[in-house]
Computed example of a mutant assay.
Amino acid sequence: MRSATVVPLGRPWSTAPGPDNSKPALHYMSGFGDTAAPAPEPTTYKDVIAADYHGTAVSHLDALSHIAYRGLLYDGRPARELVDAHGARFGDVAALARS
């Protein structure tokens, strides 16, 4: 049997610029309930969040497939064969969710 403690690390998106956040997140609604015309069913309310992950205001985990040096990923694996427009077939962080 396995057990674990979940430690939430989330925090609200910082959308205001500041000394430690020169590139704040962009957030806007792209679907909302106060429009004049009735929305088709099912009704969806959507928002957009854009963030520059390589700053000091956002935390993230880089995958082993994020950086290549001389065409090679971690463990000498060829980036050309493993990373394309559909994603990474080696070293992505999705595997952490299954562990």
Rank of each mutant, 00 (worst) to 15 (best):
S99T: 04
A16M: 09
T43V: 14
T15V: 00
L26H: 03
P8V: 07
A68N: 02
P19V: 02
N21Y: 02
G87H: 05
A37F: 09
A94C: 12
V48K: 09
N21I: 00
S30V: 02
Y69H: 11
S65N: 06
I67E: 08
T15C: 02
P38A: 05
A37W: 08
T56V: 07
P78N: 03
G18S: 00
S30P: 04
A68E: 03
R98Q: 11
A79Q: 04
D92G: 05
D52P: 01
R98L: 12
G33E: 12
M29D: 14
D92Q: 03
L61W: 07
A37Q: 13
R77C: 08
P38S: 06
D62R: 06
H66G: 08
R98V: 10
P38Q: 02
L82D: 03
P78G: 01
L9K: 13
A16Q: 09
K46W: 15
R70D: 09
A36I: 10
P12T: 10
G91A: 07
A97Q: 06
D52W: 02
H86S: 11
P40N: 11
A63V: 03
G76V: 02
A95Y: 12
A39Q: 14
M29F: 13
A36V: 11
Y53D: 05
K46I: 15
A51N: 03
I49P: 04
L72N: 04
H86A: 15
H54F: 09
D47I: 15
P17N: 01
D34M: 12
T35K: 11
K46G: 14
H27M: 10
V58A: 14
V7C: 07
P78S: 01
P78R: 01
H54P: 08
K23P: 05
T56G: 05
Y53R: 06
T15P: 08
V6Q: 14
Y28Q: 10
L61E: 01
A57K: 00
L96Y: 11
D47W: 15
S99W: 07
L64Y: 05
A51R: 04
T5K: 09
A39M: 14
Y28M: 11
A95F: 15
T35N: 12
P8F: 09
P17E: 02
Y28S: 10
F32S: 13
T44G: 13
P19R: 00
R11C: 12
D75K: 15
G33V: 10
L82H: 01
V83Q: 01
R98T: 07
L64C: 06
L82I: 00
T43H: 13
F90Y: 11
R98I: 12
A36Q: 08
A51H: 02
I67W: 04
L64E: 06
P24M: 01
